[in-house]
Design a protein around this nucleic acid. Sequence first.
RNA 1: UCCUGCGUAGCUCAGCGGUAGAGCGGGUGGCUGUUAACCACUAGGUCGUUGGUUCGAAUCCAACCGCAGGAGCCA
Length: 450
Amino acid sequence: MTIKEALASNNPIDDITISGWVRTRRDSKGFSFLSINDGSCLANIQAIVDDGIPGSESISMATTGSSIKLTGQLVESPGKGQSFEIKALEIEVTGTADDTYPLQKKGHSQEFLREIAHLRPRSNLFGCVFRTRSRLAYAIHQFFQEKGFVYVHTPIITASDCEGAGEMFRVTTLDGNQTDKKDDFFGKPTYLTVSGQLEVETFACALSNVYTFGPTFRAENSNTTRHASEFWMIEPEMAHCDLEGDMDLAEEMIQYLIKDTLQHCAEDLELFGKFVDKGLLERLHSVSDQAFQRISYTEAVKILKKSGMEFEYPIEWGINLQTEHERFLTEEYFKSPVTVHDYPKSIKPFYMRINDDGKTSAAMDLLVPGIGEIIGGSQREERLDVLMKNMEENNISKKDYSWYSDLRRYGTVPHSGFGLGFERMLMFVTGVANIRDVIPFPRTPGSADF
RNA sequence: UCCUGCGUAGCUCAGCGGUAGAGCGGGUGGCUGUUAACCACUAGGUCGUUGGUUCGAAUCCAACCGCAGGAGCCA
């Protein structure tokens, strides 16, 4: 039985077996108390082990970090702090942990725990983070599946080196002496994907509503709390959908995910609210209940200009919003998530649909307090002639991307989609400020341990 | 990649030119239905690395390495 199940019981249980890892042991003359955790939930279960029961001679080996198996009874606890506890009838120390075990009863810094990423899931904080991560992934599938979206697995190895964005990781079997790319495994240069969007568009133009959810790789040398070289991304793509519908879906999804987490990860969120981010629960409730703000890029620039704020980078129509601008909009001006739409076309990639004004693209970014951009999306250019012109202007090879323009050549439809950074969403939901602390084994420039 | 800060015991940190310290954790003993238990005793350190200044460097300077935060890029 898991500890979660045992603790959920309202009645004594005559015969119970639990297995887990010792968090603390408190010895008395004649008996010992153990706090045991198995990761099924945040809470530990307390066990009392009397001297003389089978296995009790090994109680001194049940140190912090060791693994044990207990058989006994679940009984009402005479002590304060827990309603039920286990009265052990038999104990077995499955695996010992000597005094080099790095986790202590006391709290550790997140920096230290990052260095022992193989043991940090045994800490309260990281147990909560990774249980929440699992539930959030499940909720994402549930959200799309309930709406009839089809889950598409786009390739991880790709020859599309474009989107204008991001440095890519080369995938190659060439050794140092071979230089001819024709000798490489795929006969041409290949990379790890930076986005499944272009490929998933082909499925949207067949199955209508689709989504991807998979790993994504960026070889950018970015060193921030919200960038990783390997992360997970969700990319829905909808046929017969314009930018308006795209923004509707993005906002509905964010609210759905927050509500789901509030409902199913209450115990974990309570810990985040207590130790990570005091305002977390209040913010999550307000975000899940209130309508999001929605403004055009042009309006955003006006607001920033009129704000009277001294920005390090003065805002001007035509340049991208800087982090400081985004933070001002979402954290100070609106104090809520903000969707900014219709950006200048010059700062957006070739596949985004050009608006009728000829100056802006049907693009949108969803900004949230504390993190900034959590979603980036657009309506795609569905007109063949306009797309070809965009490709020319952006120096995109028409030959390499003929399969992409074919979608406009054969039965083209208006379609839209966006990308949600999974870890950024998890950061928003948990209040954890560093992306390295919401990924089991984070990969960042200069660091790929474990 | 740029800017800033920080590397002292297993962990968190104090010391900031003159004999390396505390709390927690570990070990030993005691004690109690205990709750980050309590009490006593105890072990534990090339002060990130290399070089320089100085009679003398954990302390001042430089370079390098590592980590963190901010910026750019983005999700």
